[in-house]
Design a protein around this nucleic acid. Structure first.
Lengths: 116, 116
DNA sequence: TGAAAATATAAGTGGATTATTATATGCTAA
DNA sequence: TTAGCATATAATAATCCACTTATATTTTCA
């Protein structure tokens, strides 16, 4: 296997610990194929808004996701410039697609907010 | 990227949390190229024997490593039959080789124990 | 301008995780 | 058969983590 980047073991452990949480790991898998805002995650995970915001902040602090304000929403996406991007990509390839979660939202009309 | 196995997200998060610890991650990286016993890890990590045993037990409980008694020593190795093996392998490829740690032990004559 | 929506942040709490200390187990060799 | 080594296990203490509740900030729109 050819690997593009070699990570410091300490940094790698930090990233793995971050992703070693079901909510954050699922978030990142979803963000791998869609941009998303906090309110959507709140729906998907049936969690409180502060809980979701706190998970996202950890991912943002580590540089794994980035944010872009769009009106009153803040849209999150994977940060492709992150030094961990290819590492995370490789992980994600082992996980089942989670797009059905967003599709469910769409069917409930709960995804209009971040459409476009 | 072609991936051999797809893991349940929940299981994947569990494995990532396990590996999201510098000591355990380094252990697994070392075991990727060498079998090892507890006393060697104690030396390498300058940690207490119970602390090391407890880390190893977590890896063993998850099926990532297996043990084989050899006289008074117990030799640990990566469990290639684990359903997580290819997942873990992929991770490890991103990490720098840690063989120098065992080489240091050898130079101090502290590796005789597990030689075979 | 003021109300409402989306999000962030702070403080506090309970549960999980890690290390320590103490003790038990299993094997070897004298 | 007993002493010593390697390792496991149990109990406990300290630290960390994720969630909750409460509040602040930013933006939109009427």
């Amino acid at each position: 296997m050819q690997v593009s980047t070699t990570l410091d073991i300490e940094k790698a452990a930090t990233i793995l610990k971050l992703l070693g949480d079901k909510t954050r790991l699922t978030m990142v898998k979803i963000l791998d194929s869609n941009d998303c805002c906090v309110c959507e995650f709140v729906e998907i995970f049936k969690a409180s808004q502060p809980a979701i915001s706190q998970h996202i902040r950890k991912l943002k602090d580590a540089g794994i996701v980035r944010e872009a304000r769009r009106g009153q929403w803040i849209i999150y996406s994977l940060n492709k410039e992150s030094e961990f991007y290819s590492f995370v990509q490789n992980l994600l390839h082992h996980l089942p697609n989670q797009d059905f979660k967003l599709q469910e939202l769409e069917e409930q009309g709960l995804r209009i907010s971040c459409d476009s």
